[in-house]
Design a protein around this nucleic acid. Structure first.
Lengths: 156, 156
DNA sequence: ACCGAAAATGCAACCCGGTTGCGAAACCTT
DNA sequence: AAGGTTTCGCAACCGGGTTGCATTTTCGGT
């Protein structure tokens, strides 16, 4: 029997105050599941995928997480990054306003441990684009081997 | 009855000389199907996906195209770009050698017509990355509305 | 507190791009 | 022409993502 997860479920009691504010600031009604999801994303210290969240929140249905993420992206609670791993990753959008191009930073995908790193301090360098094209979003992905994996030899 | 597509099939007779050389230069044995695939990619004047190729070469099996692309990528006949559209795109790698970071250029994905453009003249600006990380490849994607779609109003 | 409409959620099924196992066909060498 | 190797077609599979629909929860009005 899956847990109800609703009002009377202790799981609902995430660090509500902070996360509630985070959602309300972006005009998202803070339901129990949305709080669970936003808290999971915020406290994972990396970009997480839908299936990561399925594991973390194993009582919550995949489609609920999916629709929650969809809503979060639309309301700029999180932004989606495509690291080329085959599954889109999500991370909290810290900005008060929408994520502008300047907000966007570089991401690094480690081909060994399959983690995605946010280089939050490195902004995406802007480029001149041809006349007539208008840019809505940018994505700068680096692929390679991360610090941890470079350090420890992975061939026992 | 599917066409044999082999030695005696007229479809095989693509502009062979050029494409054969292109494959042999990268140490890929030029089979009938590989010539069809490389020619299709080269003559599509944009980055094409596996399913694009399935349509263009509708007599060739999907898995054959897939394995051909896999081989091409390994031998640097083409390079793969992930435009975030959900399907990886491929384009001819013009360089004699492997595609280095400097070879890589910016891509633009139009959210209206779903085409991927190569801005071949715009190289990916390089950035400083943290100590310990090593980069193997880079991908700079812009999303927005292309020149054509901006020009013609798409709401009849 | 109760009711009904609207929103949110769970479930199950589906879609589609990508991937694989395996037998058949083509190729190459002798 | 025979035998081993490579390539190819077929069919099935996989996993991330997506959707339709019934159920539950939420919330404003009474």
């Amino acid at each position: 029997m899956p847990l109800p997860l609703q009002s009377h479920n202790p799981q609902k009691m995430v660090d509500s105050p902070g996360q509630i504010r985070r959602l309300e600031k972006k005009n998202v009604k803070p339901t129990a599941i949305r709080l669970l999801v936003v808290d999971a994303i915020a406290s994972a210290h990396r970009a997480v995928s839908l299936s990561d969240l399925e594991v973390i929140l194993d009582t919550v249905d995949k489609s609920s997480i999916f629709r929650t993420l969809e809503l979060f992206v639309k309301h700029h609670v999180v932004h989606a990054i495509d690291d080329g791993s085959g599954s889109v990753k999500y991370e909290i959008c810290e900005g008060e306003e929408e994520c502008t191009l300047d907000d966007m930073h570089i991401h690094f995908y480690c081909t060994v441990c399959h983690r995605t790193f946010c280089f939050k301090t490195i902004h995406i360098p802007s480029v001149e684009i041809p006349e007539g094209f208008s840019v809505e979003s940018a994505n700068y992905m680096l692929k390679g081997v991360c610090k941890d994996c470079a350090a420890k030899p992975h061939c026992i």
